[in-house]
Structure formats: C-alpha cells, structure tokens
C-alpha cells in the first residue's frame, strides 16, 4: 500500500466516506462540510402516503449516493461504481481492490451490522463504510460514524452488503480516481455549483412536498395527526421526525449546522462576507429545529399532548420554513455566485 489509510470520523456516513476516500487520493482541501455543500446535501422531503418503520417518510438530506456522485463530478474526479448480483463476485472485487491498496466504499444495511448498538439496527440500507485492508478472514473497516476503525469478518461484510428491502445495496462498491489535480479554481466553481443546485432543490422543486415547501407540507399534516392517529401514535410520528433530524449522522439540527459550517468554509474560497451572514441564518434554523425537537419530546413523553401542542409544533415548523426560504433567497442573490 502506497499510503496508509487514515480513519476519519464524521457526522454523516456518506460525507465521511467521500471525505476520507478523496483525502486518501491526495485531495487535501476536502472537509466534511465542503463535501456536503458541494454535493448539495441539504434538503427536506416528506414522501406522501409512505410510512417507514411505522412513521412518516421524512428526510433532511438529499438522496443516498448523491453527495458522493455530485462532489466527485464537480471536482472533476472519476467515480468507479459497481453493483453485483452474486456474492462471490462482490467479495472478489473488494479483495482485489484492497490488495492493490485501494480503499473502497461500500453501501451496506445496518440491520446486521455487528458493531452498531442493537437499538440502532433497523432495516436501513443506505449506510456507507470504507473497507481498506484485509487480514486473514477479517476486513479492516473505516465506518465514519465510529470513533475508531473497526473490523468485519468476510461473511459479516457480505451479509450487510447484500441486505434486502428498500434501497438494497446490491453489493455496491465504489472508489474515486483523481485524474487532474484539484486546484483552487476547480474548488471555487464546485462550491458555486453546489450552492446553486441546493437553491434549486430547496426553492424551486415542484410538487409541494419537498424543499422549503415540504416543511409546510409536514406542518399541515402535524396539525391533523392528533385527530387522525390519536395522541400516542401522533407522538410516535413526531418522534420519527426528531430521529431523522437529530440522530447520529446529522451533525445536529437536521444537517442545518453542517450547511452553516459549509458556508463558513466556502467564504474562505469566495471571499464574500454575505456567506458568513447567511451561515448565521442556517445556524438559527438548526437551533429552531432543535428547540422544536424539545417541544415534540413533550408529546411523545406524554407530558403535553393537547391539540394546541401539535399546533404549536406546526407553527414553529412554518417559521423555520420562512427562515430557510429567506436564507436560500439571500444565497440566490449573491452576485459573486452568478
């Protein structure tokens, strides 16, 4: 191996995998917030009529795989990605790569992931980790949400790579190839592109259930949950929002702090002070999401379960929508981004 792979802990698995793989390939400037922002990671969506784990299907980030693909593409980095139908072929592929000293990203399901606390093992299939070496029957694994590198046996890794259900990983493995050195100019234009795409996704996406309008869509539903589902199940639905928003992987405040950190770092490349002021807006949005989480906890703990409590939560969500909407509008009016 030409260069020892270094484990890197991150807030979110896909950002972390992207950052660590690119750093290993000599793209030194990359940080988790930059990978997140260049990949236009911030999002909001509630998929209508769909429930996941008996709660609303809500996400505060863009779809799985998009951050890695977009960030690499914007930086002029080639991505090799392979899917497998056969387990032995999927194993052989990863073996060959790590033997050549190429750390490889793998999409996995967390239900059978042995080093995760059992409380976190739902059938969630869009987790990512890096395999960077093999010693006998064990792979050395860098999972970005863990504090240190960890290990999986060959059969354990195959099992999680072939988890089934929605978003099944199908053994997917991927790695970047850096062909042209990433210079300052490429970084600048990648940042601009990432911001513009995020403005489009949050302000102009049609349908009414995604982007900033998606927050309003959920708020409207929250008002009806108590009548429709009862206080207890309504509370569980709110609990699902809190988990999507705050659980390990989000960096806190539904990825809003991560985006604020991105804008702060983007300022170093674009030198426009307006970015710092808008970064503050996203910090504020993150704080508001967190305050609302405290209020929602009151419902699922059974302390405050009146209709007025559901209404207050919905009202606050609408306020958050306004803050995020005006922040993205401010971003879209920055001249240096045009």
């Amino acid at each position: 191996m030409d260069k020892r792979f270094e484990h890197l802990q991150a807030a979110h698995c896909e950002n972390g995998v992207t950052t660590a793989l690119l750093k290993h390939r000599g793209v030194d400037f990359i940080t988790e917030p930059l990978a997140f922002g260049i990949g236009s990671g911030l999002f909001y969506i509630q998929i209508p009529f769909l429930t996941v784990n008996n709660g609303p299907a809500i996400s505060f980030r863009t779809m799985p795989g998009a951050i890695f693909a977009r960030t690499c593409k914007s930086l002029g980095i080639q991505v090799v990605r392979k899917k497998f139908s056969r387990e032995d072929q999927a194993e052989a592929y990863v073996d060959r790569l790590v033997q050549e000293g190429i750390p490889v990203g793998c999409q996995v399901g967390v239900f059978h992931l042995p080093y995760f606390p059992v409380e976190y093992r739902f059938h969630f299939n869009a987790h990512n980790l890096i395999v960077f070496d093999r010693e006998d029957d064990r792979y050395l694994v860098s999972d970005p949400v863990m504090e240190t590198a960890t290990q999986l046996t060959v059969s354990e890794l195959t099992k999680v790579r072939f988890a089934k259900g929605p978003l099944a990983p199908q053994g997917q493995a991927y790695y970047p190839i850096v062909k042209i050195p990433v210079d300052h100019q490429i970084i600048r234009s990648a940042i601009i592109k990432g911001i513009k795409r995020n403005i489009r996704d949050m302000l102009h996406i049609p349908g009414g259930f995604a982007g900033v309008n998606g927050i309003k869509y959920t708020a409207k539903r929250v008002r009806r949950w108590r009548d429709k589902l009862g206080a207890r199940r309504g509370g569980l639905f709110l609990g699902q929002i809190v988990r999507m928003q705050e659980e390990i992987g989000t960096g806190g405040g539904g990825f809003r702090y991560l985006y604020a950190a991105f804008l702060e770092q983007a300022h170093a490349y674009l030198q426009d002070d307006e970015l710092l002021r808008i970064s503050e807006d996203f910090t504020k949005a993150g704080d508001m999401w967190r305050h609302n989480a405290v209020k929602m906890a009151g419902v699922y703990k059974g302390r405050t379960t009146e209709q007025s409590d559901f209404d207050e939560i919905a009202d606050r969500m609408e306020e958050i929508r306004e803050v995020e909407k005006s922040a993205f509008k401010r971003l879209s009016s920055i001249k240096s981004l045009k």
Partner: peptide, 8 residues
C-alpha cells in the same frame, strides 16, 4: 432523541 428512540 434518546427518548424518541426509546418510544419507537
């Protein structure tokens, strides 16, 4: 959020 996970 620990309580959200617990109630789930």
């Amino acid at each position: 959020k620990a309580q959200a996970l617990d109630s789930a």
